[in-house]
Amino acid sequence: MPKDVPRFWREIQQRYNMKGNKCGSCDRVYFPPRESCPYCRRESMGKMEKIKLSGKGEIITYTIIHVGPEEFEEQVPYPVAIIQLEEGPKITAQIVDCKIDELKIGMKVESEFRKIQQDGSTGAIYYGYKFKPVE
């Protein structure tokens, strides 16, 4: 797991602000941003435009993690889902502010800025997105 500040720091725009990009050739949206569009490849070179994603989407599948990595051990059991964003990309994130038995596929969710994990008691705190049900 990431323990180095630069490794986390360079992803801040994506993890804090959900910055993705869009292929200027076919309009497909990517998150995290890609260097080129897998569909257009060389046609997309130099045409990938940065965009901020809305953070709105729906759950297409999920799991409840009971045996978590060390950094997440205190949180178990916790839900993780794959969310299809309005703009097209699918992403993996925790679901918060939702009772586990109320989770379902198709549920509308939106992103929240939250603490994800921390590097021990004195190291860096890593923030990023989690998702909660839309009221």
């Binding site: 995290p32 949180q75 994800i116 994990q117």
Partner: peptide, 25 residues
């Protein structure tokens, strides 16, 4: 994917669990 899956707390069994959940659905 360490940066975009594991970082957010999903485990390896968790990934296959999400395949299973969708297959059931």
């Amino acid at each position: 994917d360490q940066e975009w899956e594991a970082f957010f707390g999903v485990t390896f069994p968790g990934l296959y669990a999400m395949i299973a959940k969708r297959h059931m659905h």
